[in-house]
Amino acid sequence: MEVEVRVFSGLEKFVPGAGPGKAILVQVPEGATGRKLIEQLQIPADQVFTMFVNGWHATPEQVLRPGDRVALFPPIGGG
């Protein structure tokens, strides 16, 4: 199945073809979790601090569904 992934704030350096905010389409096995996606993208797990799936905070254990919009961030703040 295919999910739509965006990586930000420095994580793009681990993912060929990714730019900040640029959506990339990634094929993952049915039933894949967020953790599996991060592994497949070869992003070091300790670099990912926040994951959103369709705008909702998600844990690495969350099972992805076809067409999900996934966003991955390192620790960030501001205000």
Binding site: R6, F8, S9, G10, P20, G21, T50, F52, A71, F73, P74, P75, I76, G77, G78, G79
Partner: peptide, 15 residues
Amino acid sequence: GQGLPNYGTNVLMNI
């Protein structure tokens, strides 16, 4: 230590 020095407060825009 990292987030704010690297991109400043506007790093928030995407999240």
